[in-house]
Structure formats: C-alpha cells, structure tokens
C-alpha cells in the first residue's frame, strides 16, 4: 500500500498524498490507529451494556405482568 502511494506521488510526500483522516492516522507513530481500535472495542462493550438493559427491561415487564395475574406472588422477603 505504501509502495503504491510512493509510486503514484513520488517519495517526497506520503502524508500530502493521503486524505486528512489518513494523514492523521499515520502521524505520531500511528498512535491513532490504536485509538481507533480501542474506540471500536468500547463501542462493542457499550452496545452490550445497552442490549443487556433492554433485555432486563423486557423481563421486568414480563414479571410485572405475571405478578399482576397472581397477586400473592412476589410478596416474599
């Protein structure tokens, strides 16, 4: 990939040849590539938290319904 860019633009300007995002990703020893990976993982974890909450909401509604049908249940403890 780098070779291709070098070939197209000459050896002087890898960064100039890239788009803004690509230049940013390659700067600072490519540190922001790690940031991108970490953010993707974090997005996955966050989605997992959201979906667990949604499942809990649904289960709570279901149990509320069932308790409403059987008024004596769920009154323990």
């Amino acid at each position: 990939m780098v070779e291709m860019i070098l070939h197209e633009t000459g050896p002087t300007s890898i960064l100039q040849a890239s788009s803004g995002i690509e230049a940013a990703m390659l700067s600072n020893d490519k540190l922001f590539v790690v940031l991108a990976v970490v953010l993707i993982i974090w997005a996955g974890v966050a989605l997992f938290i959201f979906s667990t909450d949604r499942k809990l909401d649904r289960l709570e509604a279901e149990i509320n319904d069932r308790e409403a049908q059987e008024p004596t249940a769920g009154k323990t403890a």
Binding site: I49, L56, L59, E60, E70, T72, A73, G74, K75, T76
Partner: peptide
C-alpha cells in the same frame, strides 16, 4: 456502577421469578 446496577436487576428478577415459580 452500570455493571453493578445490571447485576442487581438480574438478581432481583431471579428472586421474583423464583417466587412466581413456587406459587405455581
């Protein structure tokens, strides 16, 4: 705190479900 809250809700649900099962 988010993870804690989810655990608590899960455990409370489990307890209520258990009570309902005993009822049946």
């Amino acid at each position: 705190w988010l993870l804690y809250t989810q655990r608590v809700r899960t455990q409370l649900l489990a307890r209520r479900a258990e009570a309902l099962d005993e009822e049946e």
